[in-house]
Amino acid sequence: MKTTILIPARYASTRYPGKPLAEMVQADGSRKSLIQMTWEAAQGIAGVDAVYVATDDDRIADAARGFGAEVIMTAPEAENGTARCAEALKNAGLETDLVVNLQGDAPLTPPWFLEALIAAMAANPDAQVATPVLRCDEATYGMFREDRAAGRVGGTTAVFDAQNRALYFSKEVIPYIDPGKVPDPIPVFHHVGVYAYRPAALAQYITWPEGTLEGREGLEQLRFVENGTPVMCVEVDARGRVFWELNNPEDIARIEAVLQAG
């Protein structure tokens, strides 16, 4: 199964303009941009045949070529990372069996998350779309609650059925838990912003208009859910590693603390 990783990156983020070029302090004291960290992480994923940065911005493209990445240019009008991946696939004429969308705001994404996603798609040939989910530990659940209490939109949570098909994704913390009765294990799953698609699913995606729920939540994967295409949720194990995405400038300190701890 030929697998291609696409890293969609745009400069004009609403919540965090220039996010792909934001620099983080590494364990050795050096600094690297988010897009470079993401590209380097992609190089270590087993079973991947090619990696490209897909962007509409010359600043990101120049930076990516500077550290050795192959770049596919896309139009500024791409409405989200999934649409940008669909356009990049078409523009470059890529021949592949599977596209993995590794969004550039999750430098702490362990390689085994993506490997689990690729393996799940290989084992389920009828699956059209898949995404990882990670059960929240006490610390991560606390960060979710902290962000919502402060009025910040942080990570995304997912709920799914007994066959691991997504029921809903939300920037709220779902399902609701009584603060005085938080169970162990915590029944909240952090959605990891990575996707795997069959090329046909990507092609179909851009024919649909933005869905009502997608627009309200600002979550691109809800377009599949709203149009009846099952999204397979693949539960992954953090293996003791802290995982958090860069959604807001406040997240830099959280992520740098993990990087510097080694």
Score class of each variant (00 low, 15 high):
104 G>Q: 06
239 R>I: 06
42 A>D: 05
185 P>W: 08
166 A>V: 14
113 F>K: 06
46 A>T: 08
237 D>Q: 01
214 E>W: 10
218 G>Y: 12
199 P>G: 00
34 L>M: 10
116 A>Q: 08
86 A>Y: 11
100 V>F: 00
127 A>P: 05
61 A>E: 09
20 P>M: 09
205 Y>F: 15
111 P>V: 06
57 D>L: 05
235 E>L: 04
40 E>S: 12
88 A>H: 07
81 G>N: 09
30 S>M: 11
2 K>N: 11
56 D>V: 13
54 A>Q: 02
242 V>N: 08
242 V>Q: 04
238 A>R: 13
140 T>K: 06
43 Q>A: 07
36 Q>V: 09
221 Q>R: 03
37 M>K: 04
183 P>I: 05
248 N>M: 12
49 D>W: 00
217 E>L: 01
13 S>V: 07
91 N>I: 15
85 C>V: 08
147 D>S: 10
19 K>Q: 14
242 V>T: 13
85 C>L: 10
177 I>R: 07
261 A>Q: 11
9 A>W: 02
239 R>T: 04
20 P>T: 09
104 G>I: 11
150 A>W: 12
33 S>Q: 02
163 Q>K: 10
79 E>Q: 12
251 D>W: 06
166 A>P: 07
116 A>W: 01
14 T>K: 14
144 F>E: 06
256 E>N: 10
48 V>M: 03
16 Y>F: 15
36 Q>L: 04
52 Y>P: 01
190 H>G: 02
167 L>I: 15
162 A>V: 14
138 E>K: 14
37 M>V: 13
157 T>P: 00
140 T>I: 11
156 T>D: 00
91 N>V: 15
63 A>M: 04
52 Y>E: 01
49 D>V: 00
247 N>P: 01
65 R>W: 08
244 W>H: 15
239 R>E: 11
235 E>T: 06
68 G>Q: 07
182 V>T: 13
54 A>I: 14
203 A>G: 02
156 T>C: 15
95 E>S: 14
110 P>D: 04
34 L>Q: 09
114 L>W: 04
18 G>E: 03
36 Q>N: 02
34 L>Y: 10
